[in-house]
Design a protein around this nucleic acid. Structure first.
Lengths: 252, 252
DNA sequence: CAAATAGTGTCTATCAGACATTATATC
DNA sequence: GATATAATGTCTGATAGACACTATTTG
């Protein structure tokens, strides 16, 4: 009857259509700074503004596949060893001035890649320090005089902030910090990931003790490297745990 | 150009339309059991099956508003003192056999309400113990012989499982357990919420010490009640914190 | 009285954070 | 030698979990 609320009590074709997009929060750590992949928009609205990469979901494509496709297209790499997970969905009525668009945001964490090339595309993708876009998320850091200070188009600043907060929380309970590292990495490199994402300084000694004491997190490879200078450090690879126990808690 | 990926490089009207729905995971604690609001479907597909309540998003309505509207309609209460938050979005290509439907799921936590009445609607909503729908989430509990053992229509079992896991995690770091309680409650009542949601037994003495020691969580009202039998218990109301410190951690 | 629930105290193992110290590389 | 990074050790205070004990109600 007319007031029924079940999604299948009507033919779905009777109901208003929406455009559905995926937007990507792609994070990496470059030069010790948490950085996000952004594009510069060429067209109105928000022409010339920075925005998150993204695109429309195709008719025969799941949301997850659309996100993976967009990621591959934006970074120019076919199959990336990156973590990709759904973040949240944004559906304010006026978030796009032209029509009703529902955007499903995804969070991707990538190691420090070569500068991304747009896939033969007019829009150039570039890594930008998150602190220069959202200084509120990094209270102690100096104001960025560099490329930006610019805010993002649409509600993308909010989406980026949600993505950073998700990444910060995930680093506590999951081994995802390793997603920012190459396949083999040192404890110091892993610590610099935590410091960049959380925006805090950590005690190297306590960090070392904690991270090597968390069972299943790190597996020693047996080799060492001195790519940071100083005493050579042991190389590790990621273990097989999915949940850290005990967790790596953020400082209060 | 033709390979551009920005959602706004094209007129959105050129792209495939999707139907967008909201589905609700509404949880409460009844008789010591975590229970979810489910409806029985009257029409194909899945006629006669249980399903989560939900409905289509309207054209001039945000996702959050659509979820709040559906919740009010399904529970028959206009303005509920419930917690409502977005859970995740489900967009597999074949999740609805009739057409492409994107479903944004929301999680609602409610105190033990009078039996819900459907809003003059043919579909009757009812509370069902989650353990009878998803016994895997409650390993120690006895097999339910009652109303169900039935699984849910579409991908709703997965959505419900995700909602329960979200609720379980949120109880650790937020004061959301109080959303399952009346405005004034005892420590014992709050403990039974944690036990029902997590599906574990907790030590009443350690729980009392922890929960009363977490600053800002509970504010004593000054009154007592003996609605459980035994020695009368102090009544509390929820404090003003949004994040518990220290958190209430689930037993390993 | 017994039984049930509420509330406090005590003990121990573990963990987070502060910080000393040693080891091994480069400049 | 100076400096930088790596790695281990030590100490203290906070916390989690196990559990003894007391308090106050109902039946």
């Amino acid at each position: 009857m007319a007031t029924s609320q079940s999604p299948t009590d009507y033919d779905a074709r009777d109901w208003p259509p929406f455009a559905v997009t995926v937007d990507l929060v792609v994070l990496t750590v470059r030069d010790g700074a948490l950085s996000a992949l952004v594009i510069r928009r060429g067209e109105d609205p928000y022409a010339g503004c920075l925005a998150l990469p993204g695109g429309f979901v195709r008719e025969a494509e799941s949301l997850d596949r659309a996100a993976a496709r967009e990621l591959a297209e934006e970074t120019g790499l076919a199959e990336l060893p990156v973590h990709l997970e759904q973040l949240a969905t944004y559906g304010a009525v006026d978030r796009d001035p032209r029509m009703r668009v529902i955007s499903v945001a995804y969070l991707a964490l990538a190691p420090d890649l070569p500068t991304p090339r747009a896939g033969g595309d007019a829009v150039a993708a570039a890594w930008t320090p998150v602190a220069s876009i959202l200084p509120d998320l990094f209270p102690g850091s100096p104001p960025h005089s560099g490329a930006a200070g610019a805010s993002l188009a649409f509600d993308h600043a909010r989406i980026l902030a949600d993505g950073v907060e998700r990444a910060r929380a995930k680093l506590e309970y999951s081994p995802l910090a390793a997603a920012f590292c190459p396949p083999q990495f040192t404890v110091g490199e892993l610590r610099r990931v935590y410091e960049a994402v959380w925006g805090v300084a950590l005690d190297p000694r306590n960090f070392h003790r904690k991270v090597t004491g968390t069972l299943g997190f790190l597996v020693p490879v047996g080799d060492t490297t001195a790519r940071q200078g100083g005493r050579p450090a042991q190389l590790f690879r990621l273990g097989d745990v999915t949940l850290l126990n005990p967790p790596m808690l953020r400082p209060v």
